[in-house]
């Protein structure tokens, strides 16, 4: 009996320390990157460039929020890049055919959420494998995007719309404020509400959660709808920032997002993870990409580095 108590006590003691460790490792890593790149390029530590990094990470940052939920619940969503593309093109297509810009924005969000709902329906309700379903929607939605646009970018939006991705409030870019706000809300949701606790529980032991009388289908469905909706939000900022909706928008973004979530300490098999970690992961990837760009490293080599980072991050989790 005493042994058990001791065991429980040591585990309880160990728990927070592990968490602090992951976070502090990430902070040290981020600081290391900042120092390294500032020695490489004098331009790196300027206010302009730092703002630049923050604006650039909003796309992966926004999508990484629900991805953290999805991975914690023990699933995976590979279709986020294609949903982003679909929402972006929907926005452009609707506006081009004469719809009011703000109505188009709302409808683009609805389309994103619907795409997420399709994933959620197949995965949560009909118990299909998340990976294969989302690979299917990844390919299908991207094809759909090209069919809609015939490969041509859609540009030419009203000035008021550009405020979303390019405007500033008190000197801080509006898109960054929205990302921070959504991160905070999602943090409170996952820490303080039932849905948040159920998300963790799902990743730890789905059977047990079901036997506790919790609606497993609903929780899992919601995580995927959220994933689609946030990809839609990211799409709107994306279109507003680049002033054009391209069919290739968001192509391959799932690598950045999943890397950010995984190096942020979220466990690949679910059940463990934190949004603070994800946020740091997003910053690390943004810094890495920006710094490597400044050093003139090609985009393809950047993805090689991200690939290696994923493998390193996940190997650490198994120990």
């Amino acid at each position: 009996m005493n042994l058990v108590k001791e065991e429980v006590n040591t585990r309880l003691k160990r728990l927070p320390s592990i968490k602090i460790n992951t976070i502090s490792i990430l902070v040290i890593l981020l600081a290391g990157l900042l120092i390294f790149f500032s020695t490489q390029s004098p331009y790196f530590l300027t206010t302009l460039n730092i703002t630049n990094v923050l604006v650039q990470v909003t796309t992966i940052g926004l999508i990484a929020i629900p991805m953290t939920y999805v991975i914690i619940s023990g699933a995976m969503d590979l279709s986020v890049g294609s949903i982003l593309g679909l929402s972006a093109v929907t926005l452009g297509f609707l506006y081009e055919s004469g719809t009011n810009i703000w109505v188009s924005v709302v409808l683009a969000l609805v389309v994103g959420a619907l795409a997420g709902a399709l994933n959620g329906l197949l995965i949560a309700r009909y118990k299909m494998q998340a990976i294969v379903v989302t690979i299917g929607t990844l390919v299908m939605l991207r094809g759909l995007v090209y069919i809609i646009t015939k490969g041509k970018p859609i540009s030419g939006y009203p000035d008021s719309f550009y405020f979303l991705g390019q405007g500033k409030v008190l000197g801080i870019p509006f898109s960054v404020i929205v990302m921070m706000a959504l991160f905070s809300i999602a943090y409170i949701l996952i820490k303080k509400t039932r849905i948040g606790r159920y998300t963790y529980a799902l990743g730890n032991n789905e059977e047990a959660v079901r036997y506790s009388g919790i609606n497993v289908v609903k929780v899992r469905f919601l995580t995927f709808v959220m994933s689609g909706l946030f990809a839609g939000i990211a799409a709107i900022f994306y279109v507003s920032r680049y002033a054009s909706a391209q069919a290739s928008a968001g192509d391959g973004i799932e690598l950045d997002v999943i890397t950010a979530v995984l190096i942020g300490g979220t466990h690949i098999f679910g059940g463990r993870g934190s949004l603070v970690g994800t946020f740091l992961g997003v910053l690390i990837i943004g810094t890495l990409r920006n710094g490597l760009n400044l050093m003139g490293v090609s985009v393809l080599f950047q993805t090689v580095i991200l690939g290696v980072l994923i493998l390193v991050a996940v190997s650490r989790q198994n120990k």
Binding site: G136, V139, M140, G143, L144, Y146, I147
Partner: peptide, 11 residues
Amino acid sequence: YWVDATTGFIL
């Protein structure tokens, strides 16, 4: 472009 959409649908 229909080829991609169809591939995804078949998946």
